[in-house]
């Protein structure tokens, strides 16, 4: 008579909520143990996939780092026709420091300039004998902040600089800046494209791997449905399993990459012409590692969920 006879009815589980949580974790671990081979295969596949991603990230991060290093060569040199006195120098320096984008200023007096020139002519210093120090102009070398090292920003900066009356001439290696920027932009674009393809391929591989682990157990899912398991009850262990596979894969990949790159950094000197430590090679930043692990969890979760969805639609 009551139409609600088979409706949701709270089952008096002796374990309560925590009993339920404990049950699902135990079930997940048992499932992994009882389907060990396919789980190991899944973790290996996911590890390899994440290894590709993290290797790509490592290369990308280091190329960016190298680019940043090179971009420090972008500097604006301001020339004066005469030596500045103390007061003029301080006034000008303060003025330039207020310009947005200025990082550091280095004053090169006429004497300094000649000294530099002399060291460049190493071995042939005699050429400069008798040359008066006034020949070379005094200058200020301005290093720009990271964000201002693009063609457009440098140009805008120089325009503002030229409005200062004491400044006679400004040089900044236009051509080099342009080429450098083109190169960096190309690298970022190619990196993004490649990274995008890799990410897609990896997501595809991982979700298919998880799908296989779930499909191999369709009779389990069907049976659970027939003995009255709710959808959530059936899904939770599979979702936990998928997330665990994702986490293990991501962490393993990072560990393997760390070990390999550590070995590389410590032994590369033997077979490379440059010393990678001096070249400033770095590992993937911690935030990226965390992002990889989180991605692992998410991909595991979503991969399991979509497989279960498709699976349920068929039965």
């Amino acid at each position: 008579m009551s139409h609600a006879k088979f409706k949701r009815r709270h089952v008096s589980g002796r374990g309560g909520v925590w009993g339920g949580v404990a049950y699902f974790f135990r079930r997940t671990l048992l499932n992994i143990r009882q389907n060990l081979v396919i789980n190991l295969l899944a973790v290996v596949t996911i590890t390899l996939s994440f290894l590709i991603v993290s290797l790509f990230l490592l290369v990308f991060v280091n190329l960016e780092g190298a680019g940043e290093l090179w971009s420090e060569k972008i500097q604006v040199t301001v020339y004066f026709d005469r030596e500045l006195n103390e007061k003029e120098f301080i006034a000008l320096r303060n003025l330039i420091m207020t310009l947005e984008g200025t990082d550091t200023i280095n004053y090169v007096s006429k004497g300094d300039a000649l000294k530099r020139f002399r060291t460049r002519l190493k071995g042939q210093e005699s050429l400069l004998d008798g040359v008066p120090p006034e020949v070379l102009p005094a200058s200020m070398e301005i290093r720009l902040k990271q964000a201002f090292r693009t063609s457009g920003a440098v140009e805008a900066y120089v325009t503002r600089l030229k409005k200062i009356p004491t400044i006679v001439e400004v040089q900044y290696g236009e051509e080099w800046v342009r080429r450098f920027n083109t190169f960096m932009n190309f690298m970022r674009f190619a990196g993004l494209l490649l990274g995008g393809f890799i990410a897609l391929a990896v997501l595809f591989i991982i979700s298919n791997t998880i799908k296989i682990t779930i499909y191999s157990r369709r009779e389990e899912v069907e049976l659970l449905e027939l003995v009255g398991a709710t959808r959530l009850f059936i899904r939770i262990p599979f979702l936990l399993e998928g997330m665990l596979q994702g986490v293990c894969g991501a962490i393993l990949a990072i560990l393997i990459l760390a070990a390999v790159s550590w070995a590389f950094l410590n032994h590369a000197g033997n077979f490379l012409i440059f010393n990678p430590q001096e070249a400033g090679l770095v590992f993937i930043p911690v935030t990226f590692c965390v992002a990889l692990v989180v991605t692992g969890i998410l991909v595991g979760f979503i991969g399991s969920l979509t497989s279960l969805h498709r699976f349920a639609d068929q039965s």
Binding site: V11, S12, G13, R14, G15, G19, G20, Y23, R27, L30, Q34, N35, E219, E220, E222, L223, L224, L226, V227, G228, A229, T230, F233
Partner: peptide, 28 residues
């Protein structure tokens, strides 16, 4: 079921327990 539908990866005990686990009954 005519074909039993026992889960091959689980023990006899676990196979029988499934019906009770679904109800959320405690382990003991």
């Amino acid at each position: 079921f005519q074909d039993f539908r026992l889960l091959p990866n689980r023990t006899v005990m676990e196979n029988v327990a499934i019906t009770l686990e679904v109800l959320g009954i405690g382990r003991k």
